[in-house]
């Protein structure tokens, strides 16, 4: 039995220690906002925060997440939407939506570290795949979220 802290709540999970965190979140804890895309940390659909850092949860053994604070898309907003979530709606970013929780987690982590990123910093940091091609709106929404965050 392993104990995980996810979105501020403690969970005891009966899983093999090498199980990727993604599948513990989805199958055991039933937090299905985090998505499976590739299983090899290449697409970022499974991005969550581990102690505030963006992590591709499909490739992190759950044992490595014990003792950390894990945040998933479900735990991002408390009461009202975050600046990133609001910007995503304002810019009408999602199409199919499948990659977007991973995108939002990656962008949230970027803005926590770099509150007003340049396009180059965005390019270097946000390497997630969106098959619908929402990238132009993602870029706009990142700049919009930076402004919203700065204003609040």
């Amino acid at each position: 039995m392993l104990t995980l802290e996810i979105n501020g709540t403690s969970f005891d999970v009966d899983v093999e220690p090498d199980t990727p965190l993604l599948w513990v979140l989805r199958d055991t804890v039933k937090l299905t906002g985090t998505k499976f895309g590739c299983g090899v940390a290449a697409c970022g659909a499974c991005t969550v925060h581990v102690d505030g850092e963006p992590v591709r949860s499909c490739s992190l053994p759950v044992s490595a997440a014990v003792g950390t604070k894990i945040t998933t898309i479900e735990g991002l907003a408390s009461g009202k939407l975050t600046a990133v979530q609001q910007a995503w709606i304002d810019e009408q970013v999602p199409q199919c939506g499948y990659c977007q929780s991973g995108m939002i987690m990656a962008v949230t982590a970027l803005l926590a570290e770099t509150p007003d990123p340049t396009d180059e910093e965005i390019n270097d940091s946000i390497t997630n795949i969106c098959r619908c091609g929402t990238y132009p709106r993602i870029r706009k929404a990142i700049h919009a979220a930076a402004k919203l965050q700065g204003a609040s």
């Binding site: 090899v40 290449a42 390497t127 997630n128 091609g133 990238y135």
Partner: peptide, 17 residues
């Protein structure tokens, strides 16, 4: 097999549209 050998355009090489 997977995205590393079936690559996709990402944010960094998305043109302005």
């Amino acid at each position: 097999k997977n995205f590393p050998d079936y690559d996709m355009v990402r944010l960094a090489n998305t043109p302005e549209i």
